[in-house]
Design a protein around this nucleic acid. Structure first.
Length: 768
DNA sequence: CAGTGAGCGAGCTTCCGCTTGACTT
């Protein structure tokens, strides 16, 4: 019977550590926190030193029961939760919940799961640091007070079920402010010039003018200057440069790279990483640390040496720049560098590959690069073109890994320049001046929002993914892909002694999986910024973190820190309760409806953003829901009035009305109770009855192709070919055909029978 | 894939940070 019990936070970790220790040790886990403030109640006594009431969470009752049993059998209990604020609190809660006394309890910490580190930790036990525990209690109580005092105000003033908090409200604010920045962005155009010169053997040298022209006239004037000018290599320089590898992954950088390179959402990345961790392929995936254990560094070195040769190995240590990092774990790395595949699950493997490459590259040499820049003079202008190229002299870490960037303008890989000589005269092939436009800051992706939050020290590795999903669940933010719009640009081409001006078009503003705020988010954000500027201030977290640090050092009592915050905070809570609902969600007057002479309003209604024609006391007032992507704060009266043209009676086909409208899934026409989606080329506002009729007929033939079998006298039941194979359509029910039945042989009776045996769709069960 | 939008009022919602499965299709 082992006489030592070690309790860590994660079961996967427990399993590994148990392998390192002898028979005298039993290693088990607490599955994270075991006690917390109860869910349904503030549970903080604000009158009494902010005394919190904790309870064992419902899902941890069994864990505590099991732990109690193990404690009884053990002599010494090692509390081995993480070495950070939350970990210290977990140890303390465990000690309280398990009724441990000081003589049987030891606190141990380690920052990597290696045999050495664990054995070392067991030699260096200490007691629980209550100052650190108190810093955690301050953090916990502050978050509870902020969340549970502000959220109910939102329920009353705006809408039920809404929420506010130190982290999520800042995340929403960032997205709202970015959207407004984009809306008010004034795009300027300018003209850049590029040139092509003919070289020997049909080769072409591409060069760019380093400056841009602000106007069309200036660009034109420059091209005219160049017409007939002589071009020559004025200067040829080569410069050595180098590139260094990126550090190994933390949670947030993993989320960013997996998003850019693999297209994963942050929660998808975390689910896959969890699986890799549980199967022992990678180290812990919720970390802010860049450190690698000594064992890992030397394992990487030998893997690199055996794979690429010793010249590629370079021992590196990385230091985090983040002030908020707690570094309780290692960076994310493979547990065994010799393993370069994680098994057969496709996406797990892709993520593992990314982690493996990044960690390995972080211990490899710099890439040595030689840059060549050719400066090209123009006989009758002071300006000059430049052409640049790169030669990789030594690839170093580039052999395995190239980091991607968020920057959409990032330069593509440069090739080598062809052989050139100073003084060489160049023959101009053509010059192109193309209008380009300045771009606003981009909308956030899930991963770039995480990056921003991390930079501001807001949130923790374990909460990035849940925060992103919370703000979507609350209806503040939606992740959408939106089509771009066509935009014209001007282009001049100088070739063969003459300049041609053309107007061309390009698609701009295409957004893939980007975060858009909703109207609710804007109203909530403005309310919070107005009434709780302190809490949604971008540096609020950083400021309170400083105070938590002082508490952790024993320099400040936690209840007085919370007291000082709460006194002011609670006053603003009380003040904000006095604000009228109608002041929070103001209707915007767009103007007058030319048809009726009534006022047109935009506001957030009971069912979402709405346009209203006529005052509230008008019995004939009309409403129309706003469409996706339209905002109360900037919709124009033209756009608003357009909404009233739908639904629109298009005409009559087969004695039934054809109606055009825009639904949840886009524009459609409805006929005889059926919906027909409109293609991009058809507009519900202008579609004619002929076009609609054609569409209906066409969709019917598509349906006819899917039809396997129909029954005379019962048009409720059909056998069809679906996306997932043949199925029976019985009214609104779709029924799978059993494998042993041939769909074309089914009788009506068999179909009815199968349909009746199939239970009603239960839909998505509500989760607790 | 509708059009809806009054007012009353009961009873619900909510935070952040640690952990895994339990749910669906």
């Amino acid at each position: 019977m082992p006489k030592n019990l070690v309790i860590v936070e994660s079961p996967a970790k427990a399993k590994t550590i148990e392998g390192y220790l002898g028979k005298e040790f039993k290693v088990t886990s607490s599955y994270g926190h075991v006690r917390d403030l109860p869910k349904g109640d503030l549970a903080v006594d604000v009158e009494n030193g902010f005394l919190p009431t904790y309870e064992v969470q419902a899902d941890k009752k069994a864990v505590i029961k099991e732990l109690k049993k193990l404690v009884k059998e053990a002599e010494i209990i090692y509390l081995a939760s993480d070495d950070d604020r939350e970990g210290e609190a977990i140890s303390w809660h465990l000690k309280e919940a398990l009724d441990l006394n000081d003589s049987q309890t030891r606190r141990i910490v380690f920052h990597e799961i290696t045999k050495n580190a664990i054995q070392n930790a067991l030699q260096n036990t200490r007691t629980i640091n209550l100052d650190l525990v108190n810093a955690q209690q301050a953090r916990r109580v502050l978050d509870r007070l902020v969340g549970f005092e502000i959220s109910p105000i939102l329920w009353r003033k705006i809408k039920g079920g809404l929420s506010a908090g130190r982290v999520q409200s800042v995340a929403v604010r960032l997205v709202v402010e970015r959207e407004r920045e984009i809306d008010s962005f004034d795009s300027r155009s300018s003209f850049k010039v590029s040139a092509q010169f003919n070289l020997e053997k049909g080769k072409v040298l591409v060069a760019e003018l380093p400056r841009k022209f602000e106007t069309e006239d200036q660009a034109m004037a420059f091209l005219e200057e160049c017409n007939g000018a002589d071009f020559f290599i004025k200067k040829l320089e080569t410069k050595p440069s180098k590139k260094s590898p990126a550090p190994p992954f933390t949670t947030s950088t993993l989320q960013q790279e997996a998003s850019r390179k693999l297209g994963f959402s942050v929660s998808q990345t975390m689910t896959l990483a969890q699986k890799l961790y549980e199967s022992g392929k990678i180290t812990y995936m919720r970390t802010d640390s860049l450190n690698l254990s000594e064992e890992a560094v030397s394992a990487a070195a030998s893997a690199i040496t055996s794979e690429f040769g010793s010249g590629y190995s370079q021992n590196r240590k990385y230091k985090t720049k983040s002030k908020s990092a707690q570094e309780a774990h290692e960076a994310i790395r493979p547990t065994d560098f010799r393993v370069n595949s994680a098994g057969k699950e496709y996406n797990e493997n892709r993520l593992y590959d990314l982690i493996w490459k990044r960690a390995l590259a972080s211990q490899m040499g710099d890439a040595q690069i030689e840059k060549t820049i050719a400066t090209i003079g123009i006989s009758n202008s002071d300006l000059h073109f430049t052409a640049s190229g790169e030669v990789i002299k030594f690839d170093g870490f580039l052999k395995v890994y190239i980091e991607s960037t968020d920057d959409e303008d990032s330069e593509e890989q440069k090739g080598m320049l062809p052989p050139l000589a100073e003084g060489q005269v160049l023959e101009m092939k053509d010059l192109t001046s193309r209008e380009s436009f300045t771009r606003s800051a981009p909308r956030y992706t899930e991963a770039s929002l995480v990056k921003k939050l991390e930079e501001m020290g807001i949130g923790r590795p374990s909460t990035y993914a849940p925060t992103i999903s919370t703000i979507q669940k609350r209806g503040y933010i939606s992740k959408e892909t939106r089509e771009g719009k066509e935009r014209n640009y001007i282009q001049f081409v100088l070739a063969n002694g003459s300049i041609k001006r053309t107007t061309r078009s390009e698609i701009t503003g295409y957004e893939k999986q980007k975060l858009f705020p909703t109207n609710i988010a804007m109203v909530v954000n403005d309310f919070l910024v107005d009434h709780f500027p302190n809490v949604v201030d971008f540096s609020f977290t950083a400021n309170v973190e400083k105070e938590f640090d002082e508490i952790a050092l024993g320099e400040k009592p936690w209840d007085s820190m919370i007291g000082a915050f709460y006194d002011k905070f609670h006053l603003t809570v009380e003040e904000s309760k006095l604000v009228e609902r109608s002041d929070v969600n103001k209707a915007r007057v767009l103007g007058e409806d030319p048809a009726s002479g009534k006022q047109v309003y935009a506001r957030l209604g009971k069912f979402g953003p709405v346009i209203q024609i006529g005052n509230s006391d008008d019995d004939d007032k009309k409403f129309a829901s706003m469409r996706q992507g339209q905002f109360v704060e900037n919709i124009t009266i033209e756009e608003a009035l357009d909404l009233f043209q739908l639904p629109r009676n298009v005409g009559v086909f087969e004695e039934e009305e054809v109606v055009a409208a825009i639904g949840k899934f886009g524009p459609y026409v409805r006929h005889n109770g059926k919906f027909y989606s409109l293609g991009k080329e058809l507009d519900p506002l202008s579609i004619t009855i002929d076009e609609a009729t054609e569409l209906i007929k066409m969709k019917r033939t598509v349906d006819a192709n899917m039809l396997i079998k129909a029954f005379d006298g019962n048009d409720e039941i059909q056998v069809l070919n679906g996306r997932y194979g043949p199925y029976i359509k019985a009214g609104k029910k779709n029924v799978r055909i059993p494998k042993d039945q041939k769909p074309e042989d089914l009788t009506l009776e068999e179909c009815v029978d199968l349909a009746e045996k199939t239970p009603e769709k239960r839909g998505k069960g509500k989760r607790k």
